[in-house]
Design a protein around this nucleic acid. Sequence first.
DNA 1: GCGAATATGACACACCGGTGACCGCGCCCC
DNA 2: GGGGCGCGGTCACCGGTGTGTCATATTCGC
Lengths: 230, 230
Amino acid sequence: MTGKTVLVVDDEQAVRQMVAFNLEREGYQVRQAADTVAARGEIADVRPDLLLLDWMLPGMSGLEFARALRRESYGQDLPIIMLTARGEEEDMVRGLNVGADDYVTKPFSPRELIARIEAVLRRAGASAPGDVLELGGLRLDLGSHRVSAGEQTVEVGPTEFRLLHFFMAHPERVYSRSQLLDRVWGPSVYVEERTVDVHIRRLRKALERHEAAQMVQTVRGSGYRFSARP
Amino acid sequence: MTGKTVLVVDDEQAVRQMVAFNLEREGYQVRQAADTVAARGEIADVRPDLLLLDWMLPGMSGLEFARALRRESYGQDLPIIMLTARGEEEDMVRGLNVGADDYVTKPFSPRELIARIEAVLRRAGASAPGDVLELGGLRLDLGSHRVSAGEQTVEVGPTEFRLLHFFMAHPERVYSRSQLLDRVWGPSVYVEERTVDVHIRRLRKALERHEAAQMVQTVRGSGYRFSARP
DNA sequence: GCGAATATGACACACCGGTGACCGCGCCCC
DNA sequence: GGGGCGCGGTCACCGGTGTGTCATATTCGC
């Protein structure tokens, strides 16, 4: 699943994991950092789309960190949501002045957090993920969550949909079972590699009524490839 | 945007000015009133498009004022956002029942305030009388608050109406339970996600006498979609 | 033709969503 | 002021679907 990437910076592991769990369930990629040093590394590394930043951090405070980021070229466009404990609200005025886009007071509900993230991402512009993928007569519509071949609708289950989505976003390239598990099932899911075979088969079955099954190709010894060419 | 007029009713001058500063920067016309008496005058005078109403006011409370307004002809359509201090959230449930369209807890970020104002105005603007949504034989009349299928009237409750309204305004797109709660119930309402299921069912029940229930579609693992196509 | 890799069918189980019932809260009407 | 009513939210239960695993068949490359 290719969602937006969110970096959570908080010194409490429990908070990070709670956030990660809920965001991943919504389709986000989540990276974690316990302090600003690790955060720097992650930012340079994965270029997150949004930063969830705890107000109280060991060493440099979240406020200073946000200010520092805002002075840098990449950080200027990086949306920031501050996490703060109740009672620190007055400080948040300063936080917002420094350039945070919003803040959430702990404890917060997952829904509230997600709502604010989506609001900020929407504002940051172009948050609507690529809406329709089309390849070799196959159409996959992310918005309506539909797959069609020509005029007909292709019935696929949730996992097959994600698998096909990944394939259509990365065609003409071979992926090993383990890579597919990573990218489609998620990094924190462990299942047998052979499971991929089964879902490949299910995907082919769904496609074969529309003469599109040959687009899912086996590369013996390496993995699978999605291609419009035979 | 042609500069909508917002009336701020709050006894603290600092709050009024902060709000005014931020709203004017966004292009709004802002009027101020320190109490309900002055507010009455302003309302009669400038016919504001939206009312920002402090919960605690000298004399008459914001709640009573809102209730009183709702009983009057002009006030019925006037969108109201309540301003409240943290800790009074429980009371706000009553505020919302009285007819406030949303509320914001102090201290709030300018962003948050503006986002909510825009959300409320969008909702209010969409319900200009005579505005009708039509899709697949279903008609939803915002003005008269009525739903009809062909010649027959479809009986739906308030929540089902809002749900259907949102769906018909955003067809052919999947929304997760969490998104629906955000967009239909509002960002500041916290209920169980499964509550959505129940209202989906109630909506379907209302529609099925008119053979329109199949327009409300389940996308397993993702959410719900409203569509004229099967 | 042989071994390894992949396809396929079957199956058990977890999970998701549908559904009916219940409860509590305002509100309105006696 | 009491009782009924409508509405909204929650819960518990159930049935179906989707998913992962395994055993077995089949194909591929050498």
